[in-house]
């Protein structure tokens, strides 16, 4: 069974918000990935979104593109990513792991084979950026049959009809993309996010994570007031780039810990997830 729902239930009881860091597997090197995942957990991550490198990351901004390119140069693809998760699970059976990537590597492996292997490796959820709900009914069935959650994106431009469609297929949590744009884009309007989340909550009781545009403790704190989870990605990768490969893990740990502190300081009475 997926660890995602238990994670959110525990946090709800503790009246805390989930922290979901995103890192690209294999960046800055394959040897970094598993130690980095453990460091993120030590820093307070509840769910890790692990990016599966793809040659054509159409929905990603320059930072995640660079991470993907670094990983690909070291031949890290879906096969290797599943290996990282299995290795991570030897020491961590509690933190949820969500694979985030594009459809083609999964289709190349075959949906059924991918799902079986991901489940065996200890993956809890899958987010396929270019599988919108109308193209993923069959895939959702396969993922669910293997005890994993299929995570979907919603955007500021998503209509009520689309929110309903996503709510019908999604499990685990829903990832609200707070900006129209690519990952790593700039500004974020929290009151607008709050209004959109209310519209989504009208149609689903799943926890809502918010990502895109969260770059520091202040924006994380602000978003956590209205969301169940904060997703932060490009900024972590940027911090690691600045630190250089030797100091990358330590820098990521410190940065994520600072976000964790901001989230916990902002703790308010939690929403119950019925």
């Amino acid at each position: 069974m997926s660890r995602i729902q238990p994670v959110f239930e525990r946090l709800s009881r503790e009246r805390r918000k989930a922290l979901i860091p995103f890192v690209t597997a294999g960046d800055p090197s394959p040897a970094h990935t598993v130690p980095l995942m453990h460091a993120l957990v030590e820093a307070g991550a509840d769910v890790i979104e692990l990016g599966v490198p793809f040659s054509d990351p159409m929905a990603d901004g320059p930072v995640v593109q660079r991470a993907s390119e670094r990983a690909l140069r070291q031949r890290v693809g879906l096969e290797a990513v599943l290996g990282f998760v299995a290795e991570f699970r030897r020491r961590d059976d509690r933190t949820a792991v969500v694979l985030m990537g594009y459809a083609n590597p999964i289709e190349a492996m075959g949906a059924e084979r991918f799902a079986a292997r991901a489940q065996a490796a200890g993956v809890d959820g899958v987010l396929v950026v270019d599988y919108p709900p109308e193209e993923s009914a069959a895939f959702a069935g396969v993922v669910r049959a293997h005890g994993m959650d299929l995570i979907f994106l919603l955007a500021p431009t998503s209509t009520d009809a689309r929110i309903a469609e996503v709510a019908r297929l999604a499990s685990g949590y829903i990832y609200y993309v707070s900006l129209t744009g690519v990952t790593g884009a700039a500004t974020l309007d929290v009151s607008d996010v709050a209004a959109r989340l209310a519209a989504i909550r009208a149609q689903t009781s799943l926890p809502l994570g918010v990502g895109f545009g969260i770059r520091d403790a202040a924006s994380a704190h602000a978003v956590a007031r209205v969301a169940d989870a904060v997703v932060i990605g490009s900024k972590i990768i940027q911090e690691m780039e600045e630190a250089g490969t030797d100091a990358a893990i330590e820098r990521a740990r410190r940065f994520v810990a600072s976000i964790r502190a901001a989230l916990d300081a902002g703790a308010e009475p939690a929403r119950a997830h019925a």
Binding site: D130, E135, S158
Partner: peptide
Amino acid sequence: SRGHFGPYGGVFVAETLVHA
């Protein structure tokens, strides 16, 4: 109506592009 030519075609994009 959803752009399929048999098993091919379709709309495989991130949610951020769906509205456009």
